[in-house]
Structures are given as C-alpha cells and as structure tokens.
Amino acid sequence: METNNTNNFEPKVVAFVCNWCTYAGADLTGTSRIKYATNVKIIRFPCTGRIDFMLLMKAFANGADGIIISGCHPNDCHYTSGNFHARRRWMIFRNLLDFIGMDVNRIVFSWVSAAEGAKWAEVVNESVDQFRQLGPATSYQKLIKNSEFQEVE
C-alpha cells in the first residue's frame, strides 16, 4: 500500500496525550533538556478516556501520517478509571481499523507517566522512525484528495 520511496520524508505526527501524566511527562522531557523528534504536535486532553476514536479519524483525514496516544499507566489515572475505559476502546478500534485494511502501525499507544520524561522522548523518536519507515499515508491521502474534489464541486 505505502511505498518507502523518499529518504527525506518527514512524517506528520499528532500526539493525543492526557493532561495529568504524559503531558506533564513531556514537560519534564523539555525541562530535562532531552532532545526528541520535532515532527510531533501534541494535543492535550483531560484524560485518555476523552480521546474519542473519531478524533483519530479526523487526524488522519487532515493529513497525519502517524498518531501517538499516551496517558497514565493503569491504576494511575487521575480520574481512577479513564485509561481502563480507553484501553478497552482501543482494543476494539485497533482491530476494526485492521479489518478495513488500515495499517495499525500508524497508531502508537503508550503509557507515559509524569516522571518518565526520558521514556516520552524514546516513544516519540521510535514512533517517528516507525512512521518514516512506513512512508506517507498515501492510501488515505488519495481519499482526502477525492473528498476535497467532491466538496468543491
């Protein structure tokens, strides 16, 4: 489906993170002066439980090549159970995307706590490498192009 054609391809990556763990963790990455890939645009959510699957669909529809989703480790949720609910949703969603033929490697899931600044840098770097290997999301971009054409008409 996707070709690994360009060596200088830089994937556009959106990260959906929870306010209490991963966002604070990403803050720690910064204050610790750890460098990581600049491809990622971080969007802060109150909780991973708030990350609706439609938001991920919209990220792809707006040209994302890869998505990172991250929040508190199990049992560490600020709201007690948001991440447990989110985990169930992702288990179903990930398999559904696979069933319709989307490459689930374009979505990376992780737990990053507020103390894991180094892990966040690692997760982003590894994900960006993975997305770079996968190349641009051409099959999805084809759909986007068609949809723009239709909506202008």
Binding site: I92, L143, S147, E151
Partner: peptide, 25 residues
C-alpha cells in the same frame, strides 16, 4: 461536522467506522 454531508469515500469510511464502534458490545 463529524461526518461529511456529501457521500465521498473518506466520509463514508468514517461513517461506517463510527457506526461499528458505537455498536461495539
């Protein structure tokens, strides 16, 4: 506008993914 009004493939895909997800379980 979660699901586009015209029926192009992208919007249709989002609609069917959404419908299936909302019926999970």
């Amino acid at each position: 506008q979660w699901i586009s009004v015209p029926s192009h493939t992208l919007g249709n895909l989002e609609w069917h993914v959404m419908r299936a997800m909302h019926l999970a379980g």
